[in-house]
Structures are given as C-alpha cells and as structure tokens.
Design a binder for these strands. Structure first.
Length: 551
RNA sequence: GCCCCAGUAGCUCAGUGGAUAGAGCAUCGGACUUCUAAUCCGAGGGUCGCAGGUUCAAAUCCUGCCUGGGGUACCA
C-alpha cells in the first residue's frame, strides 16, 4: 500500500516537475492524530523551495495530478502548512488481512538484505566467571539484532570472541590453584586481584576429584596447564549453558589463542612496522594511533614481558573478520569498551581494511536495583548477581523482554523486586496474555463446531467498527516496523510495537464478541483475531519471546 | 582536562525534522452470569535539563553550559 502511494506521488511529481525531482525519497508516515488521515506526506513542504512555490499551493497542484483507485485511496486532501493526507479505502484493510494470512509465519519478513552475509559479535565475556546481568542485556540485544537481520533477508553468523589468553586467564589459573591447595589443607597465597567467587572453589574441587593431591607443587614446577584447561573448559560450558537457557546459540566461538597460533598477531605487528604505524619507545612497541585520529598513541607490546596488550589481538581478530568476506560486521560492546573500539578501528584503518563495513553498537550498562538500592558489582570480588540467578527468578521471556524495552543507548534500571514479583508491571505478560486470549477464542470456536474459513472466503467488509479498523491498520505495520528496527539497529522498537498491538487488541476484545450467532460476522472476526495471533507470534519471535497458548 | 551516552508526567520510559508530545506504573473513580479481569473504561498529572542557533517547521539537528553514568592503563 505504501508502495502504491509512493509510486503515485512519484508519477505525479515527475509529470509536473521532471524525473529528477521525483527521484528523491518520498516521506510517508502514519499520523498519530486520526484527523490527519491514515497516511501523510510532507513531500510538498520539502519540495516547495526547489520549485519556488508556496508549500500549500504546491500540495494542491500535486493532489490535482494524482490518480488513485477510489477503492484503495478514498480521500486525499491538503492540510496544515502543506501536508498531503490520505484516507485509505476499504480495499486496503481487506488486503492487509489477506496478506497476513497468506504469509503466515513469514509475515513481516522481507528480502531487503538480498542474502548479504552479516556477522554479529556479542557477549564475548571473558571465561573468568559466570555471566552477569549486563552480559544478559548484550546477549539479548545481539540475538535480537541477529534475528532482525534474518527476518530482513540477510544470512547471519553469531560469533563469540573467547578471551582464553592473556593476563586474565593467568589470574584465573592461579586463583584455581590457590583454592586447590586450600582444599587439600595446604594453604597457598591467593593472588592479588584474584577471582574470589565460590565457582573457583567448585573448579578446584573438580580437579581434586580427578587428580587428588598429585598436582601439589604444580605452580613451582610451572605445570599449571591442567588448572588452566579445566577452568577454561568448565567456565565455557557454564557460559554456554546460561546462553542456552535464553535460547541463544552461537555459530562460532573464536578463540583468542588461535590468533597467536596462526601467527595473525605477529603479522599485524609486521604490517604496522612496514607501514610506519608502529614504533619502539621505552622498550615497548607503540601503535601510532595519533596518525588515525586518536588523541594518543597506544602500547601494543609491553616492555616488561614482551606480551601484547589486549588491543593487539583485538585488531588481529577484526582483521580476520574482514578477510572472511562478510558484507556487514556488527560489534556489540558495553559502554566500557568505547575507547577500545576506537583503537581497533584506527588499527584496521592502518591495515587498510574497509571499516565502513563495520558497525559498532555501544550499549549502556544495567543498573541493578534491589530493595530500593543500587547493587554495586565487581567480578573479582564476586559481588554480583548472575544471569543464571536472574533466569531462575523470572525466566527467559521476562529477561529478554525487559532488556529490549529500552533503547540500548539508555541506561537500564533493572529493579529485581519488580522483575521477581511477576506482577502486571511486567509488560511481557500483557502481550503474552493477548496471544493466549486469542488462542482461547479460537479453541472456543472449535468447540462450538465452527470451522474457521480462509479470509478470502469471508466478508471482511463487516470489520468496520473503530476498534477493528484500528487493529487492522496496526497489524499492517509489522513489515515496516521490522525493517526499520533492523535498518536502525534498534530492536527495542519491536517491544514497543507488540505492546501497542496488545493494547489495541484488548479493547477490541472487550467491546466485541467474536463468537456469536451471527455466522458471517463470526467468520470475519475470526479472520481478524487470527491475523492478530500471527502478528503477535511473529513479533514476539523476532525478539525471541514465546507466544503461549495459555497463561 | 579530553572522549562517549543519557536528561521527556511523581517513578520507569516511548517518540523516523512535522500538525494538539504519548504509554505503563503509581493516585482517584467505575466494569467480571460472557470467547481468560494477568483485562477494560474514565480522571488528574508537562518550562521535553538550561541558553542560543539552523528553517516553512526542533523533544528530535548544531554550539555552549548544568546534572548523572561510562571511559581516558605497558588490566580485559
């Protein structure tokens, strides 16, 4: 329908002012005020200056040149400073319902992505502890963005960068060893800044169970490999288990250690040196970030140990992403990575990568509220609420929905008491309830011996009550909402939309009975209710939330 | 100091440069003999942080300032 209007407007403008004018994008939006029509365009306002006419006069001229089928566009008028408003005809409402029923599980999907290959990297938490609440936000955002791209015709690779090298892993290994010795009654100094969580003891206990006391003195002998491998493997399984509870499955876990084994880290250093992007100073190797727009140069190889700093493998990793030929690379990081990603981009520019293919999304943190107070969290001190604990309390649907209710650029206040309460403050129930209600209606109709007919064989023109019309119009917007959410990388638009659908369905339910003695009306309302079911189910599916049959 | 993000109703937040800025919660008043009341109907509630600028039009874009969060490591 939008295409039909857009084409009509383009044709009119081209006939009046030539095809250059008509090639510009035609803004078309659904006004919030119903007095302004079903769709409206500000085309004349933006075009007025170019053709040297007053916006209103131009709008009138365009309207006279329009030729629409009255069954599809019942009314066109000029309003305000020069808006052209359209009242859509009955044909359009019927088409919407037919289209939804025909597309069914694919309603809302499109091929805009044309099969482009998109990689989405998210979570990428260090395997040094269980996932915390903020990781949950990132996991849910990343998966929703992946789904949005799948719904809009892209092929998505979900990837997790696994930091299994470097200082953090050393610290983890030493922490486990210290606990191992402690369990065997042979106190050993706990590393400064070590990980103090109970899960470290669990890992140590596993090693005691498998190896008994045979590994005492391993630190002195420099034989901590068993501790590192066991800790890494157990943490990895734990993290995957938590993600699985959210229904998130990664296609690729990319090991940081591979970057060293394949020589990619060394290769980056070599290229930097060749291109004059790196220099030695104070015994360390520096990346000349100032040549690439950053305020200061950065160390990439430490003077004391000769080890790379974290940003060097990050750059090597991203270079490999580019080599793998993705059309679009999406990185999702927490706000604490803001400086890091700029350095990575600078490094990629130094390597000559097409960084325009890279989209970095920075999401803000979750502030956890408990009993009216902010919970301060620290991974090393193990003073944090895990994602698992949150899932235990409220389940995956509430977690996913909550994390997607707000724009990722906004700080998220997560009130544990509210989330745990499972009260009607959780809007996910409001939406799911609408779906369950529809299922109940459909079952009820079946019990009454009513066989729902295909929408094409139903008199859809019976659906003209204000609540019915409003609902149909909203249902027709799903494809546009999905596409804009994907294009703008804003998955929270989906939660806003499904809430709106539920908020439009519930009043309809209260004012109109679906299953009545009026057979024709019953059939048309069943068609409407079924279309609503499809839209709610698909909309929830885009954000990975279930659409239950009953509550 | 410098960089990024946010500031919209009492609270939590929507709002693609458009017309009279919306929702939920909370508060107050109503609606279950029904296909699910986890719902619905109604009421009150606003200096869109402040000040300039851009233009036909600014909560939205630009500049400065204020407040809050994050970053600014030879930690990740």
């Amino acid at each position: 329908m939008r295409d039909y209007l857009t084409q009509g407007l383009r044709t009119a403008v081209a006939a009046l002012y030539g095809s250059d004018r008509a090639s510009e994008p035609v803004p078309l939006e659904a006004p919030t005020n119903p007095d302004h029509g079903d769709l409206s365009t500000s085309l004349a306002l933006s075009l007025a200056r170019q053709v040297k006419q007053s916006p209103r006069a131009l709008a009138e001229t365009i309207v006279r040149a329009l030729a629409f089928d009255p069954d599809r566009v019942s009314e066109v008028w000029v309003a305000g400073p020069g808006f052209i408003n359209f009242r859509l005809g009955p044909q359009w409402l019927n088409e919407t319902l037919l289209e939804i029923e025909a597309a069914d599980e694919r309603y809302g999907a499109c091929e805009a992505g044309q099969g482009q290959r998109v990689q989405v990297e998210f979570v990428s938490a260090n395997p040094t502890g269980p996932l915390a609440v903020s990781h949950g936000r990132q996991a849910v955002i990343g998966d929703a963005i992946s789904r949005l791209f799948e719904w809009t015709g892209s092929v998505v690779t979900r990837e997790y960068y696994f930091n299994n090298a470097g200082r953090q892993m050393t610290l983890l290994t030493e922490s486990v060893y210290a606990r191992y010795m402690e369990l065997l009654g042979r106190p050993y100094p706990f590393p400064e800044d070590g990980y103090e969580g109970d899960y470290i003891r669990d890992i140590a206990q596993t090693i005691v169970d498998q190896h008994g006391g045979t590994l005492v003195g391993a630190a002195e002998r420099g034989e901590l490999a068993v501790f590192k491998e066991t800790a890494e493997r157990l943490m990895f399984e734990h993290i995957k288990g938590t993600l699985a509870r959210l229904g998130i499955v990664f296609d690729v876990f990319y090991n940081e250690s591979d970057l060293y084994e394949t020589g990619r880290v060394a290769a980056v250093i070599e290229t930097f040196k060749q291109r004059g992007a790196a220099y030695e100073k104070d015994g360390a190797l520096w990346f000349k970030a100032t040549d690439f727009g950053l305020p200061q140069d950065r160390v990439i190889v430490k003077s004391a140990t000769g080890e790379p700093t974290y940003r060097l493998p990050d750059i090597a990793y991203h270079q490999h992403k580019f080599e793998r030929g993705f059309d679009l690379i999406v990185d999702i990081f927490g706000a604490d990575h803001h400086a890091t990603y700029q350095e990575v981009i600078a490094g990629l520019n130094a390597l000559g990568c097409e960084t325009s293919k890279l989209k970095v999304l920075i999401h803000q943190f979750v502030t956890l509220m408990k009993d009216g107070e902010q919970v301060r969290m620290s991974k090393r001190k193990a003073n944090f609420v895990t994602l698992d604990e949150l899932l235990d309390e409220v389940g995956p649907d509430v977690v996913r929905f909550f994390f997607l209710m707000r724009n990722m650029h906004s700080h998220l206040n997560f009130d544990l008491n509210v989330a745990k309460a499972q009260s009607d403050e959780n809007p996910v129930y409001y939406v799911q309830y609408a779906h369950a209600r529809i299922m109940s209606i459909l079952h009820h109709a079946e019990e009454q011996g009513i066989v729902r007919l295909p929408a094409a064989r139903v008199d859809l023109s019976l659906l003209r009550a204000p609540e019915e019309v409003a609902l149909i119009k909203l249902l027709g917007r799903l494809p546009e909402i999905i596409l804009s959410a994907a294009t703008l990388f804003e998955p929270h638009r989906m939660t806003t939309y499904v809430r709106e659908v539920a908020a439009t369905f519930h009043p309809f339910y209260h004012r109109h009975r679906v299953v009545t003695d009026d057979r024709a009306l019953t059939q048309s309302r069943l068609a409407l209710v079924n279309a609503t079911r499809i839209v709610l189910r698909n909309g929830l599916s885009v954000i990975g939330v279930s659409a239950p049959e009953t509550m």
